[in-house]
Nucleic acid binder design. Sequence first.
DNA 1: TCTCATAGTGTAACAATGACACTAACAATG
DNA 2: CATTGTTAGTGTCATTGTTACACTATGAGA
Lengths: 229, 229
Amino acid sequence: MPHTYKYPRPALTVDCVVFGLDEIDLKVLLIQRQIEPFIHRWALPGGFVRMDESTDDAALRELEEETGITKVYLEQLYTFSDIDRDPRGRVVTVAYYALAKLSDHRIRAATDAENVAWFDVDDLPQLAFDHHKILDMAMNRLRAKVRYAPIGFELLPAKFTLSQLQRLYEIVLTAKLDKRNFRKKILSMGLLIETEEREAGVTHRAARLYRFDRRKYRKLAKQGFSFAI
Amino acid sequence: MPHTYKYPRPALTVDCVVFGLDEIDLKVLLIQRQIEPFIHRWALPGGFVRMDESTDDAALRELEEETGITKVYLEQLYTFSDIDRDPRGRVVTVAYYALAKLSDHRIRAATDAENVAWFDVDDLPQLAFDHHKILDMAMNRLRAKVRYAPIGFELLPAKFTLSQLQRLYEIVLTAKLDKRNFRKKILSMGLLIETEEREAGVTHRAARLYRFDRRKYRKLAKQGFSFAI
DNA sequence: TCTCATAGTGTAACAATGACACTAACAATG
DNA sequence: CATTGTTAGTGTCATTGTTACACTATGAGA
């Protein structure tokens, strides 16, 4: 079923940079291509935008189809439009970045024999297309944004310890933070709810679990409060 | 000369939000549409992306074609892709925002009888398409970015007084700033070069002119320095 | 009961921020 | 040429936020 237009049009795709966090490092989700071009190369999950969906919807759909991931924090990153970025012809891609709770998501290999895997961001394979460039920009955006918006919580389970939160910042910012100062600062914002629970299954003193108070943050944000680490 | 594809494709456009600054308020450049849809309505300058140009190039080209503006600070803003944002059918637009030195640019009415004009951002006409939404986002971005990146200088002439610079921040941030504290802060960054010149043609004590030291800023930025007002 | 690992806590020095008011210069006016 | 009007230009102090720093508490496992 062909489609004809008076003027030529680029194809439009979306690509998603999905970040996850384990105990030691920051991970990104990649799929291994099963078709040309760049067959067998690892690439960002993504695909063509349909006529009945916005790019946001397309990003969510592709993410689910290709990796099984459904409820993530998703935000538009940048649109990449270099004329030679795809060997098949003119393809413009709207890139998104997403933050996933690694624990929640048992990633499924999508269709047929598609490989899906988490890679350490400091130890990546060669990527298809200009996906390295996209990933670079996503990393920069994450690092910048995590400092002035409470998006880090999207990478942690709903209940977390202050040490986990501190480790998150240390990993994302690649910087060591002072324990007492970190706690003082984060608690003084009043955005963490202290639960009565403690972490379980550890071989040392169990830390208290906290929850992030989304509602309170939204209220404060409206009044001009600005989150900052 | 028709173009045929296996799958349907959205059309791809760019739109530019061009900001300028006069003595009293922040302006945005609009053109009055001469064709349907939204004939006679004011709209952001923009147009279709060609197959041999990136969206960045398209934005620069459209800006020159429609308004005569050439050398501006231009940055990608966001891609708007709601399926019903254009009554002609599926059109995805990559929006840019630009900062122009109002003084430099005698804006020309583009082709034929096209109207081009600067509007006070607080006193806008009804706009075509979803251009209000785009402009809103551009305003928010400008306000946020002006605080942590030295982009304000793009709105001023190459040589400016500290009072002009302060007025710029007051207008963009819609906040009153303390003169002594503002000067202390901006001078302490060491990014302004004091010239020997004074402003001319004023009826009161003439203020010293300064230039922004781009080179030094780039050097400091690489070392992790962060500009902040 | 001892060891090991991490949780959890306060203070003091220093730096950054914010509030605040007068004199200096110069053009225009009478 | 004295006066007026308008903006330029300057410093201090109180408050607040930031950084550096080291020990005790708890609980599991040996």
